[in-house]
């Protein structure tokens, strides 16, 4: 049984009849140009967006699941999160436990360790760099230990070291029999880490499959409007604008 199955998901003017399935243990990359509908799709799956069509998580329709239970099953890291207050890192990570109504220290510690932020767990968020903050937001989602983790461009503002570190965290999380969907702009990293890719163009799903199946010159130049060089046989694989 698929962890999540989406059929004919439509959001007015943003998504057109998107259908896809995700299995446990899988890391799915959402790729596409700006405005292609990646964030809208993630918000729809997280229940933050009114939609038409069906979303089911392990055969339960998403719209029949009460909000706090949905929040236990699905965690999302939205794009461009910020904290209004100078909270400590541990307090922010603990917010991820809210759907469970507890402050389970073991889960919080696990999340902090997975995201590699133990050294500054007692610092205030406003004293951290962009790269450090990005890992705190990720730890916040990990603390909820959701079955399905959605991350909207989690590596957008990171240096190459932390881009790899965050993608490793997401990959490892998916290997614990969880599902992960990540919206990502870096196609080389998408090819390197994701089990499957979903290419969106102007709200339509134009390709879904393994990186080899999806990352073709023809498709990418349709989606991005520029020619690209693709070498998936290299290790690591490389996809660059020409």
């Amino acid at each position: 049984m698929a962890l999540i199955s989406i059929k004919n998901l439509t959001v007015e003017q943003r998504l057109k009849a998107v259908s896809l399935e995700l299995n446990r243990g899988e890391l799915l990359g959402l790729i596409g140009a700006n405005g292609a509908g990646k964030s809208t799709l993630l918000h729809a799956i997280a229940g933050l967006q009114s939609t038409t069509g069906d979303i089911a998580i392990e055969d339960r329709r998403l719209d029949t699941i009460p909000p706090h239970e949905r929040a236990r099953l699905i965690g999302i890291q939205p794009q461009a999160v910020s904290s209004a207050w100078a909270l400590t890192v541990t307090d922010i990570v603990a917010l991820g436990r809210m759907p469970w109504g507890d402050e389970d220290q073991a889960a919080i510690d696990r999340a902090i360790e997975r995201a590699g932020i133990d050294e500054f767990r007692d610092r205030n968020i406003d004293h951290l760099s962009g790269g450090e903050r990005a890992r705190v937001w990720l730890a916040r989602v990990l603390a909820g230990e959701p079955q399905l983790l959605l991350a909207d461009e989690p590596i957008a503002s990171l240096d190459i070291h932390y881009q790899l570190a965050v993608m490793e965290v997401l990959k490892n999380y998916s290997r614990e029999e969880k599902g992960v969907i990540v919206a990502i702009h870096d196609l080389s990293l998408a090819a390197r880490f994701c089990d499957r890719l979903c290419l969106l163009n102007k709200g339509e799903l134009i390709a879904l499959g393994t990186p080899k199946e999806v990352l073709t010159e023809e498709r990418l130049s349709t989606a991005y409007g520029i020619p690209v060089d693709i070498d998936l046989d290299r290790d690591p694989p490389v996809v660059l604008p020409r």
């Binding site: 229940g47 909000p67 239970e69 999302i76 939205p78 999160v81 207050w85 917010l95 809210m98």
Partner: peptide
Amino acid sequence: RRLLAALSLGEKVAESLGQS
């Protein structure tokens, strides 16, 4: 109280944490 805590990280995060 819990909503106020969750809102520290914005409306989307609060909503995704199960808050109305």
